[in-house]
Amino acid sequence: MADDIGEALRVEILGAQHDRSAFESGIEPLDRYFRVQAGQDARKNMAAPFVLVLSDGTVAGYYTLSSTAVNLWDLPEKTARKLPRYPLVPATLLGRLAVDRRHQGKGYGRFLLADALFRAVRSEIASFAVVVDAKDDNARRFYERESFLSFPDQPMKLFRPMADIEQLFK
């Protein structure tokens, strides 16, 4: 985990002071988004990008949060049965999460995920779950290890109920 290496870590809202030009996770769409689009999305309130900053100011990773809605009938029947019969259920979208390849394997991905889940559960906006769209099978397995559940007909789209996330931080 990140604490094991003695690194001072902090997660901040993306700002002009954060150098994004050298960020390279190895997944081009995530890198391009971070270098080109993340600042615009923040300014237009389309997503809230957060960055993991090391003690030397290096950006080691990032994630984005935004609001979304899930079609009630896309959820597993066991989950949908417990919810009100609204056609759309409010959720929080963890739109992107990436760690720079120079810092992979240090637990920073889990650190960023924990920070994102904490911010989502702490929010005063109604949200049934945190939803992710895994970019590939490695990402899907990462989220499954962190107790995310797949949508029945969309194995790359996963969710973790907010009630479950709340239990993590009690």
Rank of each mutant, 00 (worst) to 15 (best):
M1E: 09
D3S: 13
D3N: 05
G6R: 09
G6W: 09
E7S: 07
L9T: 12
L9K: 07
R10N: 02
V11N: 01
V11T: 06
L14R: 04
L14Q: 03
A16P: 04
H18C: 00
H18V: 01
R20D: 02
R20V: 10
A22K: 07
A22V: 11
S25W: 10
G26T: 09
E28A: 13
P29K: 10
L30G: 01
L30F: 11
L30M: 13
D31I: 11
Y33G: 02
Y33A: 05
V36S: 01
V36M: 02
Q37C: 00
A38S: 09
G39E: 07
Q40W: 00
A42C: 00
A42Y: 08
N45Y: 04
A47V: 13
A47S: 15
F50N: 06
V51S: 01
L52R: 10
L52M: 08
V53T: 14
S55Q: 15
S55G: 03
D56Q: 05
G57T: 12
G57E: 00
G57W: 14
G57L: 09
G57V: 13
G57A: 04
V59T: 14
Y62T: 10
Y62E: 03
Y63F: 15
Y63T: 07
Y63Q: 01
T64I: 09
T64M: 04
L65P: 01
L65D: 01
S66W: 08
A69N: 12
V70M: 15
N71V: 15
L72P: 00
W73I: 05
L75P: 04
P76C: 06
K78C: 07
K78G: 03
T79W: 13
R81D: 00
L83R: 06
Y86H: 12
L88Q: 12
V89W: 10
V89E: 00
A91L: 08
T92C: 11
T92V: 15
L97I: 15
A98N: 08
V99E: 00
V99S: 02
D100A: 11
K106R: 15
G107S: 07
G109R: 05
F111V: 06
F111I: 09
L112D: 06
L113W: 11
L113Y: 13
L113P: 07
D115Q: 11
F118S: 12
F118M: 12
R119G: 08
A120R: 03
A120K: 07
V121K: 07
R122M: 12
E124W: 10
A126H: 05
A126K: 13
A126Q: 13
S127W: 10
S127T: 14
V131S: 04
V131C: 06
N138P: 00
N138M: 05
A139G: 13
R141T: 14
F142K: 11
R145L: 08
F148Q: 08
L149A: 14
S150N: 04
S150T: 04
F151M: 12
F151E: 02
P152I: 11
M156D: 09
M156F: 14
R160W: 03
P161L: 07
P161C: 03
M162L: 11
A163G: 03
A163M: 05
A163Q: 06
D164K: 05
D164E: 14
E166A: 15
E166I: 11
Q167R: 15
L168V: 03
L168G: 02
